[in-house]
Simulated assay, not measured.
Amino acid sequence: MTKSLLLRKAHRYLGLFIGIQFLGWTISGLYFSWNNIDNVHGDHLRKPARYLAGGVEVVPPSAAIRNLAATQAVDSLHSVQLISLLGKPVYQLQYFSGHVGEGMHLHVHHALADATTGALLPALNEAQAVAVARENLVAGAKVASVQYLASTDPKHEYREKPLPAWAVSFSEPACTAYVSAELGTLQAVRHDQWRAFDFLWMFHTMDYATKDNFNNVLLKIFSLAGLVTVVSGFALFIVSSRTLKRITRWG
């Protein structure tokens, strides 16, 4: 078998093997480049953020921290933030409870406290979650359904975000707002444009389990196969080009 024929066969079968994935990469790349990422994130469905008045009167965060430590095993604090929850000043407390190994913390825990008294607040109920979602979305939003999420699978559109959460679905605009029950804030807005982006992102990363892992073995294999295909194409051109053969002969 000649060198040219061997390269031609290798190029053909490699192209057939990775062609569908290359098509997926191209289509997804086109979708990404032709869509505004802010719209994909649902920013156009959100109202401008509301802030507390500069003269708001609050107790020191230490009051809330003391109340938290009296009821929970607080190993260390992650953060304390003053937020507006349905127009009222509230401390958002994030903390660690317990260790794993040498100083490695367990997951972050969350709590809310009234910033005017320091008293701890319960996690948001359904009515409060709907109110938070309405407060953050464009005017006239119509609620279609509400679901409480204690857990999600790796492919869920609300993944790697604080749980538990309330999924508040709207019929107009057609979207789902995810509100953290323990943080009291809107965490994400999902709609059809984002879902199409997420589906194509899965093809782009070739991570069909969690969608976000760029270091998976399948992607590495196809990337190398793509490189070999391109190199074999250049090599095939070189060995089969009549012009190059003439130049070589004359040289």
Rank of each mutant, 00 (worst) to 15 (best):
L200H: 04
T71H: 13
A69T: 11
C175H: 00
E160V: 12
N216E: 15
K3N: 14
D207V: 04
A188E: 09
S151P: 08
S33K: 13
H110K: 08
S97A: 04
H107I: 08
T210G: 04
L183R: 07
G184Q: 01
I83S: 11
A150E: 15
N39A: 12
A115I: 06
F199T: 15
L82F: 03
L163D: 06
S232P: 03
A53R: 14
L93R: 05
I238E: 08
A115H: 02
I238P: 12
V168Q: 01
N36R: 13
E157P: 14
I65A: 15
L219Y: 14
A115Y: 01
Q21I: 14
K47A: 09
L112E: 03
V90E: 00
W201V: 13
H191L: 02
A64E: 04
D114N: 13
V168D: 01
L86Q: 12
F17S: 14
A119V: 07
T243K: 14
Q187D: 03
R159W: 11
D43L: 06
N136M: 01
V168N: 01
Y51I: 10
A49N: 11
L45E: 02
F96G: 07
G103V: 00
L227P: 10
A69C: 08
A133H: 02
F234K: 02
W25L: 11
T2Y: 02
I27K: 07
V239N: 07
M206P: 06
S79T: 09
V100S: 12
S97T: 08
N39D: 15
G101N: 05
Y158V: 08
F96N: 05
L149G: 00
S79I: 08
H156V: 13
S62A: 13
A53K: 14
T117Q: 00
K155C: 11
L23Q: 10
A63K: 09
L163W: 03
R46W: 04
Y208K: 09
